[in-house]
């Protein structure tokens, strides 16, 4: 009992001490991914998505490069994961589970690794120095600038001399080297488009042109229902996009705000929460895609 109280007090002291010794001067979060190389489209989130690709391919080679009849280690884990995913999809729609597995499982793997990559230390905090005045006009608009609430009481941070970033000149900001692809709208929009258009492709290839009869028809109330169906289909794209983007980006903002308020101890449970959210978002993206495929490929004339 006394030991637990001691641990709690030590953690509290650590939290308070970290707040005094390492106060963050200001928050710097951007909604959009920064270009790493000027005048190209190569952004920091693209770099991370390449790293995610490398990690996934490495995992695939390690797990499935030398398949053995009696699995062990990574092979065992990946077999379990793939079987679990497959059974999950089969539970939603047995007809399309096998055929759509490569696409949906790739969505799952890419999203989950992207989500978790954003939680690694150094993502967002390691970057390239750049002079703030170069593109000050655009940057200052999209940076959320909050100054420390207790500026006057606290001693200045030891790292505050010159710049708030170690190794940068005074007044310089950084372009983060890494950024979770899930916190980049291009990635989430691309996945949303793939998910929706893949569903469309499957349903048209199954039901033919009759599929569009669900949206455009002239039999009374059903024509309004068709329009609503169309709207709900179109709304899926922003829903997918912003669900993933919003969750992951909000998670990053949450972590940064927590670190801004109390640099140590307090952010820890939020990290656990973000790991969970990262998994849940990947799971939801994959399962929702499968569920929409299951719904859209049903022949409506048969059921009504």
């Amino acid at each position: 009992m006394a030991r637990n109280i001691g641990i709690a007090l030590a953690l509290l002291a650590l939290a308070v001490g970290s707040r005094i010794i390492y106060p963050m001067e200001s928050l710097a979060i951007e909604v959009r991914a920064d270009d790493l190389i000027p005048n190209t489209i190569f952004t920091n989130s693209m770099l991370v998505s390449l790293l995610v690709n490398v990690a996934l391919i490495t995992l695939a080679v390690v797990a499935a490069g030398n398949l053995k009849a009696v699995p062990s280690g990574w092979q065992n884990f990946m077999e379990w994961l793939i079987e679990w995913l497959y059974n999950l999809f089969k539970g939603i729609n047995a007809e399309y589970a096998q055929r759509t597995f490569p696409v949906i499982a790739t969505i799952f793997f890419l999203v989950i690794l992207s989500n978790w990559f954003g939680l690694l230390p150094g993502v967002g905090s390691i970057g390239i120095c750049h002079a703030a005045e170069q593109n000050e006009t655009s940057m200052s608009e999209i940076r959320l600038a909050v100054s420390a609430p207790v500026d006057n009481i606290l001693p200045p941070s030891p790292f505050a001399e010159g710049s708030k970033y170690i190794g940068c000149q005074a007044g310089e900001g950084i372009v983060p080297l890494f950024r979770s692809p899930s916190a980049d709208l291009n990635f989430t929009l691309a996945l949303a488009l793939i998910s929706v258009f893949y569903t469309l492709y499957l349903s048209i290839s199954k039901l033919g042109a009759g599929y569009f009869g669900k949206f455009f028809n002239l039999n009374g109330v059903m024509s309004f229902v068709g329009i609503l169906e169309l709207i709900s289909l179109l709304a899926r794209i922003p829903a997918f996009t912003f669900r993933l983007f919003g969750n992951i980006f909000a998670g990053e903002v949450l972590l940064i705000v927590m670190i801004f308020l109390v640099p140590m101890v307090v952010p820890l449970p939020f990290y656990f929460f973000e790991v969970f959210v990262g998994f849940i978002q990947a799971f939801v993206f994959a399962v929702l895609t499968m569920a929409f495929i299951a719904i859209e490929t049903q022949d409506h004339n048969e059921h009504h």
Binding site: V31, I142, L144, R243, N247, F249, F283, V284, L288, A291
Partner: peptide
Amino acid sequence: MFIGIAFAEALAIFGLVISFLIGFGI
């Protein structure tokens, strides 16, 4: 349940995104 939560949560996330857009001055 998680699918349902994802649908409900998406609405809050839309609001969050809007609030970010306002907060970041976009």
